[in-house]
Design a protein around this nucleic acid. Structure first.
Lengths: 230, 230
DNA sequence: GGCCGTGCACTAATGCATTAGCGTTCCAAA
DNA sequence: TTTGGAACGCTAATGCATTAGTGCACGGCC
């Protein structure tokens, strides 16, 4: 069978192979380049990346930890179907943390923090037409809040569990005005923080993080084979 | 050098070796049977458990993911020192989630949930003098709340990050009245839930989860070599 | 002549490659 | 329909390559 993939960038031989494989595969799965249900053949991956099975095994194990692949011992490894329960729990997790983050920031944030957030928000507004930059700055705004609240690791934790949600986003229809809504929400959060108004900040976070999973039912109906029946 | 360990229970040969090794080592590290800074030799572990290096490598990798060991490539693998920043962030994580859990339960909990929690609390009170059972029922109370709120995976997540906190607890001096305070807090939480009083439930959770890290400074001073300088 | 610094070689431990072993699945034949 | 066998692919074992750390020796300097 002819490989449709144009070519695979070779791995950096001076770095550990397993983490690089993990990142490459994770990106492909989240971009739906590797589709849910697709089997991952170790020998194919060996050929493609020019390594042996050990680093591939390590990478697949870590992907399994994040729920992006399922390993059936002595049988097969396949890209996992999108787990709506997992996505919902991750969303719950993120909301929980960010509510506490803004509550903390209302107490402890200083002018430097506010300056950072304003800088990011300004760049973010300017990137309205650059999708990649827009996403990056969206994440950086949240990351900056986690760091200022003293919990940078929890941002990494949320990111590491976001695989299923990211795949749902990749299936989203583009929503008119979504980007502007994000900018508006970030503005409201920052405004409430500067006003030292915890209740308003929590309301803004709650609103910001509640809309994400609304299209889930429609997506599940449109792509039943990508979603875990349960 | 003579091994002080009496004997090592052999692994179950019908199950995967790596997960069993992971659990065994995790328990020993958390019980401070393996002390922070102690090197973990793969050949010693091979001898002790009668496996080859592959499952040992897998187990150590997972322990490194949870922060319980540090792997220095081409050099050594050692039991990690207790990371106070990691512990604090995990406590933040747990508090965030449980505040949202009780907020959710105030809305959605039914009589069956309340019945479960009452049953656990009753058993918990009866186990005041059985330390192991007391700890188990403490955890089960929280676990039951997570499950009733629809986020069972988040309980597992919190547990998987609790290694550093658990080791701090193992260094705690026994605090007089600690057990009764736990029972009192659980009672208050359940009471607030049944009254459908979100604010009271949040206050009770906050109080319940804030006392844990108070002795940290004293512990760090008493065991400077067990704690990560940072 | 003694001491300090540099460099090389040896040791040890991890990452990776290779191979053996074994369980599961699927298909075909009775 | 049931059973047996073959293929597939994951786990585990073994061996090799790579690299960080250590100690000793040599040379230069005080």
């Amino acid at each position: 069978m002819a490989q449709l993939r144009v070519r695979t960038e070779p791995l950096n031989r001076h770095l550990r192979a397993a983490p690089q494989l993990f990142e490459r595969l994770r990106e492909r799965i989240i971009a739906l380049d590797l589709l849910p249900g697709m089997p991952l053949s170790r020998v194919e991956l060996m050929d493609e990346f020019g390594t042996s099975v050990t680093p591939i095994r390590d990478a697949l194990q870590r992907l399994a930890d994040e729920g992006l692949v399922e390993i059936f011992p002595q049988h097969a490894t396949v890209v996992s179907r999108i787990d709506l329960a997992h996505a919902a729990q991750t969303q719950f997790l993120r909301r929980s943390i960010e509510l506490e983050v803004v509550t903390t920031l209302v107490r402890v944030a200083d002018e430097e923090t506010f300056g950072q957030l304003h800088t990011i928000l300004t760049q973010h507004r300017a990137a309205l037409n650059d999708l990649a930059a827009f996403k990056r700055l969206d994440m950086r705004f949240h990351q900056a809040m986690y760091e200022a609240a003293g919990v940078p690791d929890l941002w990494a934790l949320v990111r590491s569990r976001s695989g299923h949600i990211d795949r749902l986003r990749a299936l989203h229809l583009p929503i008119a005005g979504k980007a502007k809504a994000i900018l508006r929400d970030h503005g409201r959060i920052l405004e409430a923080l500067e006003a030292r108004n915890a209740a308003a900040a929590q309301r803004a976070v709650h609103e910001h993080l509640s809309g994400t999973l609304t299209q889930v039912a429609a997506i599940a109906k449109r792509h039943p084979d990508y979603v875990r029946e349960s």
